[in-house]
Amino acid sequence: MLAIEVNELVKDYGKVRAVNGISFSVDEGEIFGLIGPNGAGKTTVLRIVSTLLQITDGSVKVFGYDVAEEPDQVRKLISYLPEDAGAYKNLTGIGYLRFIASFFGDNEKIDEIVNRGIKIANLGKRIYDKVENYSKGMVRRLLVARALMTEPKLAILDEPTSGLDVINAQEIRKIIQNTASQGTTVLLSSHNMLEVEFLCSRISLMNKGKLVEEGTPSELKEKYNAANIEEVFTKVVK
């Protein structure tokens, strides 16, 4: 089954066309990367798939549910991690995870989800501290845990390792891979080409609101005779 079907998607902000008639699809269980320069329209696409923004034209379906017509159904299946997301500063890390988990089940289920979150966040005893006392990296780990602990059918991750050091970023990538191996589909956007190449089974490259390239990392590298995806990116965008 297709996890995401984007068909001729258009999004205007006033007179500015941020997304210009793009189409792509993501298979269930796949890690799909959306890359492109700043202002290409990646975050807009992620926000539309996450039911946050309205569609100007075209359609987007998540596991067969239309995001414009059935957003409540879509929200039951997804988990969105925005690039610059924060957590409620007055809550403790565990309190925040419990708050989010409470939207996904009853007491027993909540405990199960929170335990999974604690494991993913891997913050040790600091999980009992208030979020306001966390470093940027710790907040990001907590947010990744929040996004993945519910075992969503579709995880939409915008720059999942932003603000993390190399070690932490590596751990998060492993968690994402592990989550996908258990059946979660991942739609991921990142400026880190190494990360994209490492994680994604397929990549779409956006530029100026359009999809300009799509394929597996090896297909793209072969097509552009490039050593890595960063080189592909540079050749396509330039």
Binding site: R47, S50, T51, L52, D72, R75, K76, I78, S79, Y80, L81, P82, D84, A85, G86, A87, Y88, K89, I100, F103, F104, L143, R146
Partner: peptide, 14 residues
């Protein structure tokens, strides 16, 4: 300001 709104709006809650 705390960038928590987007998360809240994508939760399965009306």
């Amino acid at each position: 300001e705390n960038k928590t709104l987007e998360t809240l709006l994508t939760l399965p809650v009306r």
